[in-house]
């Protein structure tokens, strides 16, 4: 396969079996995953260290959170379908599906904005909240805020990808890399949903 005389691990081939672009995306995702893991570990520490941590079931509206999760998971599915269509050379179908994914992300952001404004109207701030331990709202705003920022940048990336794909500039791999990032945002939400809202 390789024209080089050196072996794979000497730089003669593709040690990871993927292009460098895809490898870099994966390494970025690992780094970003560790960022969120650190946030959640810090949150776990603070929650375990405070005996009167507020009961999340009393504060969060699970119907809203469930709908947000539903929308994000569905947008991940349309993205997977977009990558499949893009690989199969169905450019127009892929563009439509990427737009649909971006729409899902925008709806998620809208619902999160609603959740945040409800919280802020109830008197929650970064350093204080009406439910007790001040660190509760600090964790809430920082963790969901960082995730929301990832969703927002993801929507931007998806919109750019859809536009570039419609004009024929984006390669199938370009769509796939945007997809990897989008699935990662969904993956992070699985953990935030579990540890912040359910448990």
């Amino acid at each position: 396969m390789s024209h080089s005389t050196t072996t794979t691990w000497d730089g003669g081939g593709l040690p990871f079996g993927v292009s460098w672009q895809k490898l870099m995306m994966w390494l970025f995702i690992v780094g970003d995953a560790i960022l969120f893991a650190s946030f959640l570990a810090g949150y776990g520490f603070l929650r375990l260290a405070n005996p009167n941590w507020p009961d999340s079931g009393q504060i969060f509206h699970m119907s809203l959170i469930g709908t947000m999760t539903f929308v994000l998971i569905s947008s991940s599915a349309t993205m997977a379908a977009a990558v499949g269509a893009s690989r199969a050379g169905q450019r127009e179908k892929a563009t439509r599906l990427v737009w649909l994914t971006a729409l899902g992300g925008a709806i998620f952001l809208g619902m999160q904005a609603y959740e945040w404004s409800t919280f802020i109207h109830a008197g929650a701030r970064l350093s204080t909240n009406p439910w007790g331990v001040p660190l509760f709202s600090s964790c809430f705003f920082v963790i969901t805020g960082f995730h929301g920022t990832h969703v927002a940048s993801g929507v931007l990336i998806l919109a750019l990808t859809a536009w570039r794909n419609s004009t024929g500039k984006a390669s199938a791999e370009g769509v796939e890399l945007a997809g990897l990032y989008w699935h990662f945002v969904d993956l992070v939400w699985v953990f935030i949903f579990t540890f912040f809202y359910l448990v």
Binding site: V30, L40, L48, A49, N50
Partner: peptide
């Protein structure tokens, strides 16, 4: 492997310590 390692490491090194602080 690298992600799982860091997650397990953070959990046992940081998160679970909260119990002892409490």
């Amino acid at each position: 492997a690298s992600t799982v390692f860091v997650v397990v490491f953070l959990y046992f090194l940081i998160a679970i310590d909260g119990q002892w602080v409490q």
